[in-house]
Nucleic acid binder design. Structure first.
Length: 482
RNA sequence: GGCGUGUUCGUCUAGCGGCCUAGGACAUCGCCCUCUCAAGGCGAAGAUCACGGGUUCAAAUCCCGUACACGCCA
């Protein structure tokens, strides 16, 4: 049997970190086992669902480098043997299943209003009884039903949960979890509006799409027994379930906007790499026995399995993500680095054929960065007029003897042949020796005069890439300031 | 309120009864390398394994209770 997993987002906003990790795990599990990964859009919340959200979610998943075998092609169309993959296009199926349950006596119309339900719950709490719906509408006579209909009440449909026994969920991550059926309320499967509820549509579709493993967030664990009962009532075999622990913010509460960036796309614009994001997210709730940290290329797919999943929640740590991003950045080949860096360079006004070529400057500085967004700031010294930082000007340049050194070197550079890193280093070290100066006394002012900063690329490499004319010009300009 | 889940360095985690005087990684601090910044190397500090009881020759590991956190019912 081939494994089929799915990610089923509601298009009511952006794909956030938690959703991204759920997607990743489903994808990794499917790919690891040579199975199929499906995307299904749960857009039954007509008020909050938007096409923009679909776009954002699909873009986010694509950016992460996760591909789906069946599901949406764009905001309105889809492809695959079990199409459609938009729940709003499958309403007939849900109604048919609701009908089946009603006919079998396993579901019933409930006319209770929100106010009545609230009152019931309050009364139950006051009397210290479990706040479970008491199933009163199950016993309604035809005449009472007719009265409610006549009064204009629109019923929802509830699924009858057995009143005795217990339901055991055999979760792949949490083990056997049992629930007392008496404490399970009769689940609403169809809203008064006629639309299916999340818990019902999800069951119908997972069965229809032959999903074998449902990997989802911990928040769904409590709904699982009712869903399992639904499978049984419909005569279906349930899939295997795996409930992932939650992702928390630094203060221990559920990760949310006030903790900073939660949308995947925000991480894209902040300069994170998809591979680093995958690597980090994979490790939030999953690990190998050797606590391995770094996974490149296909290594995650090869190594991942549900066995290493953690039961307890994990705090999202952007600092570690950032470290990991640096590791992935350094692992990139030059071509790839350039491709990833391009949008960030462009955004900083660095595009097109430039002198010196971006290939060279990014090559010199790229690997020192942790974020793609850091790259422009490191290479801009080659393209913009020199601006001296206070530390550079007061701390390095405005020292006795510096002016002479700069002028000497400007002259020296004119005569270096061939003009390149190796020859430059040789000549300048020779100069230091001849003048009995420590290399630091020369190198530091030199770097500062050339870049305006006290830190930056390797000195002679910078001079080579900058070229003779610009280098000499910058030295003279700096000397003139002193 | 009921039910469910969870609790190992600040953070992510290893650990599945003796190898644990609890290992790795990020972050922190120090040293080394070095033309600076990164990277890298080495090292330090950091966890009475939530707490309290059991079981056992032996418990972070098994059992029970308590506390707290989170989730679901909403």
């Amino acid at each position: 049997m081939t494994i089929r997993t799915r990610f089923a987002p509601s298009p009511t906003g952006f794909l956030h970190i938690g959703g991204a990790r759920t997607t990743l795990y489903n994808w990794l599990f499917a790919r690891h086992h040579k199975g199929t990964f499906i995307l299904r859009i749960e857009d039954t919340d007509e008020v909050r669902s938007t096409e923009d959200s679909v776009t954002a979610i699909l873009d986010s998943i694509s950016w992460l480098g996760l591909d789906w075998d069946e599901g949406p092609v764009d905001e309105t169309t889809d492809r695959g043997p079990y199409a459609p993959y938009y729940q709003m296009k499958r309403l007939d199926l849900y109604r048919k299943c609701v009908r089946q349950l009603i006919d079998a006596g396993l579901a019933y119309a409930c006319y209770c209003t929100k106010e009545e339900l609230d009152a019931m719950r309050k009364a139950a709490v006051a009397e210290k009884r479990p706040a479970v719906y008491d199933g009163r509408c199950k016993k309604l006579t035809d005449r009472q039903k007719a009265e409610h209909e006549a009064a204009g009440r629109k019923p929802s449909v509830r699924f009858s949960i057995p009143e005795t026994g217990e339901t055991v969920v055999d979760d792949m991550i949490r083990g056997r979890v049992s629930f007392d059926n008496r404490l399970l309320p009769d689940l609403i499967i169809q809203k008064a509006t006629g639309g299916p509820t999340y818990n019902f549509a999800c069951v119908v579709d997972d069965h229809a799409m032959e999903i074998t493993h449902v990997i989802r967030g911990d928040e769904h664990l409590s709904n699982t027994p009712a869903q399992q009962l639904l499978y049984a009532a419909l005569g279906w075999t349930p899939p295997k379930f795996a409930h992932l622990s939650m992702i928390l913010g630094p203060d221990g509460s559920k990760l949310s906007k006030r903790h900073g960036a939660t949308s995947v796309l925000e991480y894209k614009t902040a300069g994170f790499l998809p591979s680093a994001m995958r690597n980090y997210l994979a490790l939030l709730g999953w690990s190998t026995t050797d606590s391995r940290q770094l996974f490149f290329g296909s290594e995650l797919v090869e190594t991942f399995d549900l066995g290493g999943c953690q039961k307890n929640p994990a705090v999202f740590d952007q600092t570690k993500l950032t470290w990991m991003n640096g590791e992935h950045l350094r692992k990139l080949g030059h071509e790839e680095l350039m491709r990833h860096a391009e949008p960030f360079l462009k955004a900083a006004g660095l595009a097109g054929p430039l002198d010196p070529p971006l290939d060279l400057t990014v090559g010199l500085e790229g690997e020192k960065c942790k974020l793609l967004a850091d790259i422009p700031g490191r290479v801009e010294i080659f393209y913009k007029d020199v601006v001296f930082t206070p530390k550079a000007l007061d701390g390095v340049l405005k020292k006795p003897g510096v002016k002479e050194v700069l002028l000497d070197l400007a002259g020296l550079l004119e005569g270096v042949e061939p003009y390149g890193e190796k020859a430059l280093e040789e000549k300048i070290r020779g100069y230091c020796e001849a003048k009995a100066l420590k290399t630091g006394q020369v190198f530091h002012p030199l770097r500062t005069a050339l870049s305006g900063r006290t830190e930056g690329p390797t000195l002679f490499g910078m001079m080579e890439v900058l070229g003779r004319a610009k280098s000499v010009g910058r030295l003279k300009a700096a000397a003139a300031l002193l």
